Structures are given as structure tokens and as C-alpha cells.
Amino acid sequence: MSGAFSKEKPERVIHLAAQAGVRYSLQNPYAYIDANLQGFLNILEGCRAQNVEHLAYASSSSVYGGNTALPFSEHQNIDHPVSLYAATKKANELMAHTYSHLFQIPTSGLRFFTVYGPWGRPDMALFIFTRAILEGRPIDIFNNGLMTRDFTYIDDIVEGVIRVIDKPAERAPEFDPSHPDPAISNAPYRVFNIGNMQPTPLMDYVHALEEAIGIEAKKNYLPMQPGDVPATAADTSELDKWVGFKPNTPVKEGVRRFVEWYRQYYNIL
């Protein structure tokens, strides 16, 4: 990594690599320490060595953990993670703040909310559901379907990332260290939610997929999985104020685009 930084000499860095996923963190916790802590430290050290103008990195809505005050806001406390994955993403934000404070490296953490769309992770629900429905297999519905997620289409994530990387974080003159606001700092550090602001019940998401595919899914209802939370919802007002952007792709449209891509990519007509 240090060789890549010294050779390329980047002016700005977008760091999206990580060991992702809540459920896998229960099976292989060491992978999360290696990738999300040691790996992120390598990125921070590269940024320090090259004195980069701005680092934007992927955090996660998982950092809100046991918080049930919806919608989630960057001004809320995130001291109660419910999975190791969430703990490592909170740790990334703390590590970034340290480097922003010590070395004046502008850093922006982007808390992604349930990203979906073409070229996504095959272990995410949309891939798993689509494959199972097309193959005539049942899909697993956790917490008996009583889940809500702020599903965010990939195009909106990309737009948000690009806008943020083009506006480096700055220290907030209004920051009060006697009453610290988690969303800002006296260092050049920011965190932003990137979510669709349209919390969608899981079953509505499934119905949108059934409609796009044209097949009704066979459903296997199961209890809540360890590390999961019942609902997420993003308050993106800070992102809007900072870069003038709000994710806005409706779930039905995003799911339709995904199914079109999936059929073409896997040659399923």
C-alpha cells in the first residue's frame, strides 16, 4: 500500500474496500480486524505520507447499532454497536478523526444505508432473492418480514461520494468541546449519512422484486438474526447542506434496473 501511494501520489483518496457484512462477522471476526482496522490504518498512513487533500471513506449505517430513534442523524451517539462489523466501522471514524486532528488530513466518513443495484455484493439480499426466485427456491425472510431498511440505489451512492470528495472536510468553528457534537469537530473531519430517506418495509422490497421478475417468491419466514436491527432510516440533511444532494431513486425503479442488469449479466432472458 505504501508503494502504491508513493508511486501514484494521489491528491485525493476514496476508500471503499472492507470486509463487509454483519452476519459473516459472527463467523470470522479476525477478517474484520485485518481488513477494516489494519487495512484502514494502511490507508491513513499512506494519506499522511503523501499529505493528501482529502480522504473520503465508506462507513456504514450499522454504526447506529442499538439506537431506535429514527431517522438516524449524524448528531446522535453511536456508542452501542450490535455487531463487530459495526464496531470496526465506528473505529474507522475514530481513527480518521485522530489523523485529521494530528496531521490536519481532511477526512469524510460516508455512512452508507443498505446499498443495492448492479455489480453489488452477491451475499446481499437482492442477489440472493433474485437467484432463488428465478430458480424456484424459497427465500429466507428474517424477523418474519418485520424489517424496514432505507434501501439506497448505487447511482445515488456514487453521486454522493463524488460530490463529497470534491469538497474536503473543514474544521467547524462552532464546535464546542464542552458539549461535543459527533457530527462535526475542531479538526477537518465530517461524517455524512447517504441514504434514500424512504424507509421501506422488507416485504414491500420483496414485492417490488416479484413484480420486476414476474414471479411470486416462495417464502421461508425465520426469526431475527444476531447482529441485525429491525429498522434503519437516514436523515441526510447534513449531506444536502454540504454538497446539495439528496439520494432519490425510488425502490421500485432501482429494483427494476437491477433485475434488467441481472438478466443480461447472467444471460437469463
Results as ranks from 00 to 15, higher is better:
A234D: 01
I33F: 09
N267F: 01
A18D: 04
D150Y: 02
G117L: 03
F72V: 06
H80L: 08
V259W: 05
F129T: 09
L55D: 03
P250M: 00
A87H: 02
A56E: 09
I268F: 02
L102Q: 14
A87V: 03
V115C: 12
G117K: 06
T130E: 07
R111D: 10
G145H: 06
M224D: 11
A187N: 06
R257I: 00
P106V: 09
V243A: 02
A187W: 02
M147S: 11
E210W: 05
P182F: 07
F103A: 13
T249I: 12
V191Q: 08
S25K: 02
H80A: 13
L70E: 09
A18L: 01
V243W: 01
L126W: 08
R12P: 00
Y24A: 01
L16T: 09
Y266K: 06
T232E: 01
L134G: 09
F113V: 13
I133F: 08
L134V: 12
S59I: 11
P247D: 04
Y262R: 07
P226Q: 05
F72W: 13
W242R: 07
R149N: 04
K89P: 09
M203G: 02
K252N: 04
E159T: 15
T114D: 15
Y262G: 05
A69L: 11
D140A: 14
N77D: 14
K218S: 07
Q104F: 08
P122D: 14
P230T: 07
E93N: 11
A56M: 09
A69P: 01
Y57D: 06
I154V: 15
F175P: 03
S25Y: 01
W242D: 04
K218P: 02
E159L: 05
D155P: 03
G46W: 06
D166V: 05
L94F: 07
Q27R: 08
F127H: 15
G145E: 08
V191N: 02
R48N: 07
A96G: 12
I14Y: 00
L84M: 08
V255R: 01
P138K: 05
P118R: 11
P106F: 10
S2D: 14
